[in-house]
Design a protein around this nucleic acid. Structure first.
Lengths: 238, 238
DNA sequence: TGGAAATTATAGTATTACTATCTATCACGC
DNA sequence: GCGTGATAGATAGTAATACTATAATTTCCA
């Protein structure tokens, strides 16, 4: 399957730094990595989303913060929804790249699955090569807002355009490892998508609705990894 | 634990029918079950949410449909967000009532858990006693929109007011059965909340992002039940 | 039947999510 | 150094949303 890293998103440059991922061109009007203004939109888009949440976030507020105009922001993204989709797509692409990096050259499928689950359930760490991206903030945005990319009427049309490709590819590639371990297991992709969603949700619950989970701050990441790793290995045990 | 049904929501009357559930009074301004207009708001609120989705849903559109005015709708619900929260709260209360009904007098904890998972993952069926409620439509609304009740900035305040009590109580009561089966299992509530969320999500994926799951229409309900029941029993096996 | 409560009609506000147009700036090749 | 084309900024405008306010009318029921 994707062991050799074929088909994995290519690393190029974001934030004046050295690494970025290919994000589908349909997600933006003009590539935000191609100009200082675009990078500003990404950088402060993440920070503002983290601060005030998707519902209260507007291009007007973002424009004020980076001292540009609403119209200029619209030159890069058709809507705040597509900005969010861009960010999540970037995130999943990066996640797949990280998993690939962590698991290549590892023989045992079990070990690879364990590493992949670790990457999926631990927060992404600050990356020196992308100085403009606050990874911790992006991760919080993902936890709170990523479901909103697909829980809306436009899903089907957007899916037809391939805008969810990075998420689907990520789930598929982890599911492939499960199939390697137990080809008889009937729900590999469902299991992965459940784990990915649950990882975010449990951390959200830990912070906002703590009686819905045993995952507790400040060790939420660690116990989420433990909970979900155990869940997966028990589920696929022959 | 809740075996005897203590603390389970009481059945009273909705829709001119015989059964309703106590819904927290903080969720509405004026009890919608107390008048014809209120019942109309609930009935067509569900149908309209199902038809156009939460984002496009407005009180103006609802008012037009039931031939009343925006202001009249606002007399019952402070916002569309609180209407959605009312509907989900009603749903979880009813679910708890159904689980209690299905599992009381059953000795084996395993059997009770299996029955509870069945209730949680199968769609609610049309109920003769609530002729004004289209259960199938409500279920679709829940699948697509229920996460939006808590994935927003107001969660903490609303949680402090107890507006998520019915969801928390439901998860807790199912988790109690897990504890009965395996007191050593570390994540009973997390497992239940994961299953409840995943049940909705997998069905949503089956319809809109089918490559994220093996659950397939038109047998989505059956295979979701199978997938999640297996997942739970494997997870809690000693 | 009278008075209170519920509902309707009408109007208004601030904000949102855009779209349009025109001008200023700036890098570039010649 | 000059023109050109692309980018960004300034400004304005629109339809819809999510309410709030107030007065008039209808309904209820004691």
């Amino acid at each position: 399957m994707s062991r050799a890293g074929a088909d994995v998103p290519v690393a190029t440059a974001l934030g004046g730094g050295r690494i970025t991922l290919q994000v589908d061109e349909k997600l933006f009007v003009k590539d935000p990595t191609s100009s200082a203004l675009g990078l500003n939109i990404i950088e402060h888009g993440i920070l503002l989303l983290d601060e005030i949440g998707y519902e209260d976030f507007t291009f007007r507020k973002l424009a004020e913060r980076i001292e540009t105009t609403e119209a200029s922001v619209y030159r890069y993204f058709r809507s705040k929804h597509l900005l969010l989709l861009y960010l999540t797509s970037y995130y999943w692409g990066w996640m797949e790249y990280r998993i690939d990096l962590a698991t290549r050259n590892i023989e045992s499928a079990e070990a690879r699955l364990r590493l992949a689950l670790r990457e999926l359930t631990q927060p992404i760490t600050n990356d020196e090569s992308t100085p403009r991206i606050d990874e911790a903030a992006l991760y919080r945005v993902l936890i709170s807002e990523s479901s909103k990319t697909y829980l809306q009427r436009g899903v089907d049309a957007e899916n037809r355009e391939g805008l969810f490709r990075s998420y689907k590819r990520l789930c598929r590639s982890v599911a492939d490892v499960i199939v390697e371990i137990n080809p008889a297991y009937e729900y590999p992709v469902a299991l992965v998508s459940t784990v990915v969603e649950s990882s975010h949700r449990q951390k959200y619950f830990a912070e906002h609705l703590p009686s819905l989970t045993e995952v507790k701050l400040p060790t939420a990441h660690r116990s989420t990894t433990a909970f979900l790793t155990e869940l997966v290995f028990q589920a696929i045990a022959r």
